[in-house]
Design a binder for these strands. Structure first.
Lengths: 149, 149
DNA sequence: ATACTTAGTTAAAAAAATCAACTTTGTATA
DNA sequence: TATACAAAGTTGATTTTTTTAACTAAGTAT
């Protein structure tokens, strides 16, 4: 029991995938993000998922702090599922996948545009300090600093 | 044989995950992206992966045009694995995962900074047309246009 | 009292991943 | 010349995970 196979690799990507990389998991989080918060709403939106798997995934995500339950009816006691901040912050991951898909899928369903102008958008990297667009990024190990050029 | 279980959901995310969402797949692509192009290099970097699975995943990714092989030695004929453009363009997905991980993992290994200033970066969206940063994005179904406010 | 709905649970079957040993082709070494 | 070694896998058995399908429990509605 409880013998989850997890990646034992010292890398943000692998460790993040240990939380959100199981089959169906990202799709479940995405359904909640777009407003489907009831068990059966999620189930109906995700054609092919089974009750037991959805139930198990929701529990796992709750344990890991991405999802929380909220009582929405007292008298048949009923809970809905909400995303926590860390769940909501997967939005950039979803958008990156949507944009990748819009370029590379044979059949594509969605694109991402500027809500004001309707222009198509791309992903960029911006300095947290100045808000300026960053020309070149570097992935660095935590603890180390980059040598200044 | 060859009965892959795939998501049958009309959504860029689900369809993208049908290509890159299997266990180990994103990690394999990432290893190639960071320069590990030989079968055994990838295998050694990904502690726990088995030869048969790596072999199968590489074939699948090649079929789907994310990876290609290149002869790097004639006389023991040896191939290395390279990413195609569509494979390389997963970089934003990796970066989104690295950034999410750097905020939410208990133990975090990497962060992303401005290569010039060392400032930490965040993800933003810019217009393909003007290059300006976009304040609010909208995910829209393909084919439809958004009503202008 | 009977049927229906929401939100699951349980158990068996099927599919996928892991583990471990083996193969093939070629190189290097004693 | 034989022996060991390495790269790049393949094969088959075992284990884990997912799917399928039927069932349950608590409350509502007719």
């Amino acid at each position: 029991m409880e013998t989850k196979t997890r990646y034992d690799i010292p890398c943000n990507i692998a460790q993040s995938l240990n939380i959100i990389g199981d089959r169906w998991t990202l799709l479940i989080i995405h359904e909640i993000l777009v407003g489907h918060t009831l068990f059966n709403e999620i189930k109906k939106s995700l054609k092919g998922i089974s009750s037991n798997l959805l139930s198990e995934r929701l529990k796992y995500l709750e344990q890991h702090g991405l999802v929380e339950t909220e009582l929405y009816s007292e008298h048949p006691p009923r809970y809905c599922y909400k995303l926590t901040e860390s769940g909501k912050e997967l939005e950039d991951v979803f958008n990156a996948l949507i944009i990748w898909g819009s370029k590379h899928l044979k059949k594509c369903y969605k694109k991402i545009i500027d809500a004001e102008t309707g222009d198509e958008v791309e992903i960029g990297y911006y300095s947290k300090k100045t808000g300026e667009r960053v020309k070149r990024i570097a992935v660095v190990p935590i603890g180390e600093e980059i040598e200044s050029k």
